[in-house]
């Protein structure tokens, strides 16, 4: 366990806030300028930053993050370059904010699971989220990550049966990422009505903080969810803001959502 993630949640809690886990795509629009975006997320109030590493076939992502991945790949983003050129600089600028790599399992496999875990730890990465690696397939990779001190954060879906959700929560590393809607990433006007019950169930079983993600883009949604989760993940809305209007817009949106997370 990195411990760093737990501290970030504890700091937010101590301030009477839910945690904001903010996502952006490394390499969008290019590697150096994405560093500015990550920095803006932290300046806007992000407690944990998800560093997206582009994959050519992102089956869990909606059009906004698909577009960002295409731009990042065109700009020459690779896992190696993100670890060498993005992560260290973001760490230097924002030393207190844990960084979590979000990508697909094939990118990690191609790099080498052990090699990734070691280098990620060296560069200051606290954890990783792999949306196409369900518990049944994750045992060996998680053991490798555990040994290196990198948290493999599990996902829990609205379709996950309660017993399975509890098992995922009990055995989690870092935090539990509760997918709020059955679908791909992207903003939703409405979140499912039974989401709060689902979050309560996972939260009771979890040994670590839980966050809700997918579909969240507004202060109001953050306010509703902060009663049932330790934080929220915002991705597509930030990626869109940064792409359309640059880092300032992403910073402003973070600050906005952070207001909704005040308890």
């Amino acid at each position: 366990m990195s411990g760093e993630i737990a501290k970030a949640f504890a700091r937010a809690e101590a301030r009477g806030e839910g945690a904001l886990v903010a996502y952006a795509m490394a390499g969008d629009p290019d590697l150096p300028r994405s560093v500015d975006v990550f920095t803006a997320l932290v300046e806007g109030g992000a407690d944990i930053v998800e560093v997206g590493v582009a994959f050519s076939d992102p089956i869990a992502d909606g059009p906004v993050i698909q577009g960002a991945a295409e731009r990042a790949l065109k700009a020459g983003s690779t896992l190696r370059r993100v670890l060498d050129e993005v992560v260290p600089e973001v760490r230097r600028r924002c030393p207190e904010t844990p960084l979590v790599i979000m990508t697909y399992v094939n990118v990690i496999m191609a790099f080498g699971e052990e090699r990734f875990a070691k280098l990620a730890k060296e560069r200051g990465v606290a954890g990783a989220i792999l949306p196409d690696l369900p518990p049944e397939e994750s045992a060996s990779l998680r053991a490798t990550f555990d040994a290196a001190g990198v948290d493999l954060v599990p996902l829990c879906a609205p379709t996950t049966p309660p017993a399975r959700a509890e098992a995922i929560a009990k055995d989690a590393r870092g935090f539990v990422y509760c997918v709020s809607v059955a679908g791909v990433t992207g903003m939703r006007a409405q979140l499912p009505p039974d989401l709060s019950q689902r979050l309560d169930l996972v939260r009771r079983a979890a040994s670590v903080p839980i966050v809700a993600g997918f579909g969240i883009s507004t202060e109001e949604q953050a306010r509703t969810l902060s009663a049932h989760a330790d934080g929220v993940v915002v991705g597509s809305a930030l990626v869109r803001a940064a792409h359309a209007e640059g880092p300032d817009a992403a910073r402003a949106l973070c600050a906005n959502i952070k207001r909704g997370l005040k308890r």
Binding site: L133, A157, T159, T160, R164
Partner: peptide, 12 residues
């Protein structure tokens, strides 16, 4: 082989 899919699909 195996089953490398988002958790949402695993129950299905």
């Amino acid at each position: 082989g195996g089953r490398y899919v988002p958790e949402t699909l695993v129950p299905a």
